[in-house]
Design a protein around this nucleic acid. Sequence first.
DNA 1: AATTTCGGTTACCTTTTGGTTACTTGTATT
DNA 2: AATACAAGTAACCAAAAGGTAACCGAAATT
Lengths: 115, 115
Amino acid sequence: MSSKFIDNPLNCPVTRTMSIIGGKWKPIILNCIGDRTIRFGKLNQIIPSISNKVLAGELKEMEHYGLVHRIEFTEMPPRVEYSLTNDGKSLLPLLHELANWGNTHTAKKIIKEFA
Amino acid sequence: MSSKFIDNPLNCPVTRTMSIIGGKWKPIILNCIGDRTIRFGKLNQIIPSISNKVLAGELKEMEHYGLVHRIEFTEMPPRVEYSLTNDGKSLLPLLHELANWGNTHTAKKIIKEFA
DNA sequence: AATTTCGGTTACCTTTTGGTTACTTGTATT
DNA sequence: AATACAAGTAACCAAAAGGTAACCGAAATT
């Protein structure tokens, strides 16, 4: 990595990726959607520790990015279904690699000691 | 990703990885060290936009994690050399994948529109 | 005698991130 | 008539992350 990438941090490809999928919840949400279509409430159910405010915000941001597709059914009570766009799906192998390293002995040892 | 991973977020491998290498600077620092041995000042030079306070803090944290190796020479002025441990080097392929996705048309487009 | 060098530390401040609680909407159910 | 439902939104708050500027120590250089 040469320094030209870092003068403006967004010229660095690693930083670009992290600024798009970084943060506490985005990679988890993307991974949870995966290849399926899933309702807001279901996402909230399988990620119980996220607040619906944050879930809604992250989904909206990723929808703006074009990673997430949102379909709203005009019913009452409302129904909204989320899925990944092709761009979003292009992240799944990377997320899988993140998960692989997280299952490493190294990662588990670090977490056990410092969490 | 099933919900058992998320009740305690650190049971989720993706979250484990992100909690270790997440943040604004850690992946860049790891990538900059790479396979070489590099002095503190040199790192600061090739990542000019990081403050030395933050650089020192991140290095110390990653040293505690066992990802980074630090050798202090008792000279004056001081000299300190950093390199990756084997555990740290095990992250390089993943960082490379992060960079690959960041070089994607998709990533560049998103950054261009929203940065 | 003053300045430079290197690898930090300290105190302080701002920004960002994420969390909590309450509320909305219109239909259907109790 | 009151309540439940799904998918949020709004107002407010706490914590964490990150940035800035000043300082340190002892030897070498000017």
